[in-house]
Simulated scan of single mutants.
Amino acid sequence: MFLEMLWAAGSTFAFGILFNLKGKKLFFAGVGGALGWGVYIIFKNAEYSIPASFMFASMAITVYSEIIARILKTPVTSTLIASLIPLVPGSGVYFTMSYFVENKLDEAASKGIET
């Protein structure tokens, strides 16, 4: 779990650079990404559904971003958008389209609904 959170923080950090975050904002966005992924893993391991796990992780990131925005006196979106990046279902979209192109329509529909 720790390594997954570290990778989530790294991906958030990298996206934060593209989003033009600097200094403390970049650091706290990375922490937000790790926090969100950690909450997702905890709820997923507690046998909640994947959408519910994503919802709780998004709620945690939102509360965290609101608190950090007030501390750093910065807009919430600067931390929130970057912190949500690890939760974006990129692989789900990829596999949905892959199954669709391969004419595996049942699998495409199933993966699309899950995504």
Rank of each mutant, 00 (worst) to 15 (best):
Leu3Cys: 07
Leu6His: 14
Trp7His: 09
Ala9Arg: 05
Ala9Phe: 09
Ala9His: 05
Gly10Lys: 05
Gly10Pro: 06
Ser11Lys: 07
Ser11His: 02
Thr12Gly: 08
Phe13Val: 10
Phe15Arg: 12
Ile17Val: 11
Leu18Val: 05
Leu18Pro: 10
Lys22Arg: 14
Lys22Leu: 03
Lys25Asp: 04
Lys25Pro: 01
Leu26Gln: 01
Leu26Lys: 02
Phe27Asp: 10
Gly30Glu: 12
Gly33Ile: 00
Ala34Asp: 10
Ala34Arg: 14
Gly36Leu: 13
Gly38Tyr: 05
Gly38Asp: 07
Tyr40Trp: 15
Tyr40Gly: 13
Phe43His: 14
Phe43Ser: 14
Ala46Gly: 09
Ala46Arg: 13
Ala46Ser: 13
Ser49Thr: 11
Pro51Leu: 02
Met55Trp: 04
Phe56Lys: 05
Phe56Trp: 10
Ser58Asp: 01
Ala60Asp: 00
Ala60Phe: 00
Ile61Glu: 07
Thr62Ala: 05
Thr62Leu: 10
Glu66Asn: 11
Ala69Asp: 06
Arg70His: 09
Arg70Cys: 06
Ile71Pro: 01
Lys73Tyr: 01
Thr74Pro: 08
Pro75Leu: 11
Val76Glu: 10
Leu80Ala: 04
Leu80Arg: 11
Ile81Asp: 00
Ile81Leu: 03
Ala82Asn: 02
Ala82Leu: 03
Ala82Cys: 04
Ser83Val: 09
Leu84Trp: 08
Pro86Ile: 01
Pro86Gln: 02
Val88Ala: 00
Val88Tyr: 00
Pro89Trp: 02
Gly90Ala: 06
Met97Val: 12
Ser98Glu: 09
Ser98Asn: 11
Phe100Gly: 11
Asn103Arg: 15
Lys104Met: 08
Lys104Tyr: 01
Leu105Ile: 12
Leu105Gln: 09
Leu105Asn: 10
Leu105Cys: 05
Leu105Asp: 05
Leu105Gly: 06
Asp106Gly: 10
Glu107Ser: 10
Glu107Lys: 15
Ala108Trp: 08
Ala109Asn: 08
Ala109Met: 12
Ala109Glu: 08
Ile113Ala: 09
Thr115Asp: 02
